[in-house]
């Protein structure tokens, strides 16, 4: 069963007196364990699609299913719970909670879920090790480089063992080398842990490492390319 499924997904925004069709009938299935890059120019609908898959926004028309749940049927609270339990997010601007240390940021979702302390410690230790942040757990985000902050964001996204990680331009604020390292790391997590990643990106480094690239234009899927 697909982890993500969209059917005739439309999202229209009002702009002035006119309408902007950010998404215009997107049909898409993403299987568990995929490493997918949504590519396209700015305004092509990548981020809008990611927001709808993540339940951060509601479609104007159409349907999204994530992990077997039709998002349109979920209440706001249930949608929050789905995000907390099943979806990890990585944002372009890292968006860490500034008053929490790297470790606490990674632990945040687990704390909010009520995961017991021992289990939490085990998961966070493993996650910080997986993203190469051993020894940096006590640092506040302000004491970390951009690359390290984005690693913390990845750790936060995967620490709760989500069914799906949605990453919106995760390498956009990083230099080329750091960006490459980060993509490699997420690719490794995908391979080793089977976590499904869906990226919205312009970055060719991501595209090169993706096993599936979906090209978008004017809110539609132009090309869906699966790689070996």
């Amino acid at each position: 069963m697909p982890i993500v499924s969209t059917r005739q997904l439309h999202r229209t925004y009002l702009q002035g007196e006119g309408e902007v069709h950010a998404l215009d009938g997107v049909d898409l299935d993403i299987e568990p364990g995929e490493f997918v890059a949504l590519m396209g120019a700015s305004g092509s609908g990548k981020t809008t699609l990611l927001n709808l898959i993540g339940g951060l926004d509601r479609p104007t028309r159409g349907e999204v299913q994530v992990d077997g749940h039709a998002l349109g049927a979920l209440s706001s609270g249930a949608l929050s719970r789905l995000r907390l339990d099943r979806i990890g997010f990585v944002f372009q601007a890292y968006n860490l909670i500034p008053v929490l240390s790297a470790r606490e940021n990674a632990e945040f979702v687990l704390l909010m879920r009520g995961v017991p302390a021992d289990e939490r410690r085990r998961r966070v230790d493993a996650t910080l090790a997986a993203v190469g942040l051993e020894g940096l757990g006590d640092r506040l985000p302000s004491a970390l480089s951009g690359g390290q902050q984005q690693r913390v964001a990845v750790a936060r996204a995967i620490a709760g063992a989500p069914a799906l990680v949605l990453a919106d331009e995760p390498t956009a604020n990083l230099d080329s080398r750091t960006g490459t390292e980060l993509v490699e790391m997420m690719r490794r997590l995908n391979t080793e842990q089977g976590i499904t990643f869906v990226f919205a990106t312009h970055d060719t480094k991501v595209e090169e490492r993706a096993r599936r690239v979906i090209w978008m234009e004017d809110g539609k899927v132009q090309r869906d390319e699966r790689r070996g």
């Binding site: 299987e31 749940h69 249930a78 929050s80 719970r81 099943r86 709760g160 063992a161 080793e192 096993r211």
Partner: peptide
């Protein structure tokens, strides 16, 4: 396409159709 491997961090989370109460 590579078949997905098992996720070693199998989620142990409650059902998502109910908001539930925060612990």
């Amino acid at each position: 396409m590579r078949s997905p491997s098992a996720n070693p961090h199998a989620p142990t989370t409650p059902a998502v159709t109910s908001a539930g109460s925060a612990p």
